[in-house]
Amino acid sequence: MKPNPENINEREERLRKLTGSSPDAGFGVPDGYFENFETRVLSQILGEEDKEVKIEGLNNGTPFGVPDGYFESLSERIVAGIQKQEENVGVELMELAGNELAFGVPPNYFEQSQAEIMAKVNALSGKAEPQRIIRPIQRYYRAAAMAAMVVFAFSLGFYTNAPEKPSNYANIPVVKPDFNKLSTEELEAALKQEDVSDEMLALFSGQGEVSEAKAKQMIHPKHLETKASLAQKEDLERYILEHLDETQLIEEF
């Protein structure tokens, strides 16, 4: 049978028969060369590296070296560095401004607020009707509103002895400066003829809800446009607030 020239195995076999060569192609090695080959190569590699690092401070053929154990603790040191950096964020600011919160609350606020919330949730669960609780802050602004009203009333001529009435206030009844004779209803009725908002009346009478911000805005003299000068009104308001508490104001009315 004619050999197939494309069969590589057959071609190799024919060549070996022709040359009589073995797999070592005629070359030889010293006895025992392959027995400890691996050990010798490894010791050569490791031995050389150790030698370089220890003696010359070189690593892996580069001219740079690192201290012993450098890479073992590297990740820990990086994490610690990040943590320290995070801890330092805001430290300078804290040293300057502190981190104490300077806000306050009205006296007994938390106790009263707790009662309010419980009243609301009990109402939600059908246990009780929500109760209207007057907070100290509201009481303060109510008193302030009363003071503002008194100032307002002064400016309208309620408490003046001036004989003449301004034409634009012609329909407002003028009363003598006698607190005892002036009822809250009379004052309310008179003020309703002027530009006094329902919110002011609500604050004054204690009926309805008015926020602290709104109350502040309303009792500010600039929002009470009357004949009296702002300075006079401020002085009078201050005097009333300093000398009369809410109970007295109510009694005066």
Partner: peptide, 16 residues
């Protein structure tokens, strides 16, 4: 600035 319940000094005010 106008809060009667803010007890801080100028720095705390500035911080807020």
């Amino acid at each position: 600035t106008h809060d009667p319940y803010f007890n801080g000094d100028n720095i705390q005010m500035k911080l807020q």
